[in-house]
Design a protein around this nucleic acid. Sequence first.
DNA 1: TTAAAAAAGGGGGAAAACCCTTATTTTTTA
DNA 2: TAAAAAATAAGGGTTTTCCCCCTTTTTTAA
Lengths: 214, 214
Amino acid sequence: MQKYTVAIVEDHLLLSQAIGNIVDSFDEFEVICLCNNGKELIDKFSDSNKNITPDIILMDINMPIMNGIETTEWLTKHHSDAKVLALSVEDDEITILKMLRAGAKGYLLKDTEKSILEHALLEVIKNGFYHTRDVTNILMNSISGEQKSIQLKEKELIFIKYACTEMTYKEIADKMFLSPKTIDGYRQVLFEKLGVKNRIGLAMYAIRNKIFTP
Amino acid sequence: MQKYTVAIVEDHLLLSQAIGNIVDSFDEFEVICLCNNGKELIDKFSDSNKNITPDIILMDINMPIMNGIETTEWLTKHHSDAKVLALSVEDDEITILKMLRAGAKGYLLKDTEKSILEHALLEVIKNGFYHTRDVTNILMNSISGEQKSIQLKEKELIFIKYACTEMTYKEIADKMFLSPKTIDGYRQVLFEKLGVKNRIGLAMYAIRNKIFTP
DNA sequence: TTAAAAAAGGGGGAAAACCCTTATTTTTTA
DNA sequence: TAAAAAATAAGGGTTTTCCCCCTTTTTTAA
């Protein structure tokens, strides 16, 4: 029997080996490729000599150099037939949505059973997607909940990052070559948009939404 | 041959199974127990009926209910012969030091090879400890660098957590049944102690040092 | 090409944050 | 138990933040 081929993209060596073992233990699958980050996978896809085309890609999200979201976006764009199954510890809605929007066919938490992993792999091969109840719920919420993801402008993103530092607004204004009064406006708009009351609220929003990493 | 027994404490099912497989594949070791968090392990230790005493405990750090540091502290206190080998993705100095101070015999990143894990397990059994070069360097720095870990008082910890919220200092004072002027003092002392300039600096310190989780 | 919208900037003022100094009260310890 | 240390609190500032309401400039779209 021809087995389905799997590539694993995961920066933690012990984990990629361990997950690889599990996948290899499934009758229908074999691991053909371990990558430490998205860049490595893309290099292999791009290198016509190697020409690997796994049936399915198990993708971590937090990785150095090129993370899972960026990598999945690239794959969706350049190899639209690639099937990415996200496998991460991140259970926050924002990350999951970002990953699904990037084109992942499914999202598994690392907190799942072997058997679920096997089932998910098969489903993605057969039906093109697999979602757990948790992820489905999040999807539903995100659709029903109007459009919760607030779109921030480029300048606002820069400003909010500076707001997470010890700089005064005056200093931020200087850095951004804007008048302190303009910064005053930015702040006011963001307070309104994000529903926060002061600079601490702004900073916490930035951190929770991964705009700023402490 | 009698194998050494291993308990694995790790909240992510897939990972604990995967790591379990790897450990079982080592000639000298067998996994006798998988726990989802520290509490489960402690319950098993405390329950005289079960009376498990693994030769070595592979301990994750980030876990719900009871994390790796708290669990290791408990073990060091109540079962001083227990050998804990930390296995985590956290590579920041603060976490590593906390874990070692709690009594861990070694600290492995999840970014290590199988063979290193096997070697580390053996070393901890034989010599009582194992440290990679990275961890040793961190230990050296922490010793040479005077005593970098700043000790915060209980009230200061409570205050710094409130300072990460949108409450005004006046509101914090009310919550803590103290005069706003006392809070004024707390802030001043902490600014000095932590080398920060304003409330944002305070909040970022709290987050970086895991005093507050956004 | 003009109207509308968005971005940038300003005046002025109240509230909160920040800073320094000093004074009680409570706790620790020599 | 007296002296030292720490916690609590106050007085009296300055600076920064926050919040209105308003004008000018630039960009977008009808």
